[in-house]
């Protein structure tokens, strides 16, 4: 873990140098948020809340630290190096089972973005066509919904390869299908010159396998210590997302500042796509869900799915997990 600490420290210093300076009069409570991945539009709401002084207005001085390959924000949270992290709901559940007392502060992404994408000239248009095919799926907690879906569809792939950060294996036809986020990998394929009509795309949510995704988490200790601060952070973050939804171009500018400063290998049109899709899965339409709320039914559905995959044995109660 020493290397992790060093990297983390380095990342923190870099972030401090690179993050747009908060207004000079900032005298809020210092708070650190660590993201589960490198800077990108997936986290636009937090950048906007920081850049537009929303955190400050809530009495917070928030520093946003990017994650990335080899960095595990949960570890930093456990060590008390950061106050908040963003995390996937299944990840949070497994980590809590492993003993980290996580509390869901806000369930930001309430609509699933998980896809399985196949070459149209390979698996074809039906999920059953995936049987006997080589599929690559992300490792870890991302695996559960895919396996559950494949099971329920009765698909028996020839092989399931581990998938990591890139879609190159799929692009080079090393596999016939791969896992993808609608807001990210799907568009990465498009930006590698693959046209939509060359792909068969399966939205897991269309098959009843959509689960809540990114959420904001802190430890039970933090919540106990300063419930007010946690509430302010929750409110300000959600406000940041709403502002981004109302001003997508401005939000994109802010995202690009973060991305450019951190030298992330991406481009504006990709970030634009990502912002659009992530906003659509955060900001509710009609009464599809409540902004920032982890619905009890969604929680229970997720727990059930993970139990079914033997990834969860001893789930916390909904109340304990959401800190009510």
């Amino acid at each position: 873990m020493t290397l992790h600490k060093t990297l983390l420290a380095l990342a923190a210093v870099l972030a401090a140098l690179l993050t747009p300076a908060p207004p000079a009069v900032a005298a809020g409570k210092p708070v650190e948020l660590m993201l589960q991945w490198t800077h990108q539009a997936q986290f636009a709401g937090y950048y906007v809340a920081a850049a537009k002084g929303i955190y400050q207005a809530h009495g917070l001085d928030v520093r946003i630290i990017q994650g990335g390959p080899g960095l595990d924000p949960m570890n930093e949270l456990a060590n008390g190096d950061v106050d908040f992290v963003t995390a996937w709901l299944p990840t949070a559940l497994t980590r809590r089972q492993d003993g980290l007392p996580l509390v869901n502060v806000a369930q930001v992404v309430n609509r699933s973005n998980l896809l399985l994408i196949g070459w149209k000239d390979g698996p074809g248009g039906s999920s059953r066509d995936l049987s006997g095919r080589r599929i690559s799926i992300w490792e870890g907690d991302f695996r559960a919904p895919y396996l559950a879906w494949l099971q329920s569809e009765g698909v028996e792939p020839a092989a399931i390869h581990p998938q990591y950060y890139s879609v190159n294996l799929f692009l080079r036809k090393g596999v016939d299908a791969c896992s993808a986020m609608y807001y990210n990998e799907y568009h990465m394929l498009y930006q590698a010159g693959v046209n939509e009509d060359e792909l068969s795309v399966f939205f897991l949510k269309d098959y009843g396998f959509g689960f809540p995704e990114d959420g904001l988490y802190c430890t039970e200790g933090t919540l106990r210590l300063d419930r007010e601060m946690v509430a302010a952070f929750r409110a300000a973050s959600l406000e940041g997302w709403l502002y981004a939804a109302r001003h997508p171009e401005e939000a994109l500018d802010i995202v690009m500042e973060y991305v450019t400063t951190a030298n992330v290998a991406t481009n504006r049109s990709h970030m634009k796509w990502m912002l659009e899709k992530i906003l659509a899965s955060i900001v509710p339409v009609a009464d599809s869900w409540t902004l920032g709320e982890l619905a009890r039914s969604d929680y229970e559905k997720t727990v059930l799915m993970m139990k079914g995959q033997n990834m969860l044995h001893n789930p916390p109660s909904y109340e304990a997990f959401t800190g009510r």
Binding site: L3, G70, S136, P162, Y164, Y165, N168, L169, G174
Partner: peptide, 22 residues
């Protein structure tokens, strides 16, 4: 020794799965 999991990188995963130089 570095602690980093090189199996997740393309330079490892591509030849690993494609079973050809890449």
């Amino acid at each position: 020794a570095s602690g980093a999991n090189y199996t997740v990188t393309d330079w490892y995963a591509l030849p690993r799965n494609l079973l050809r130089p890449s």
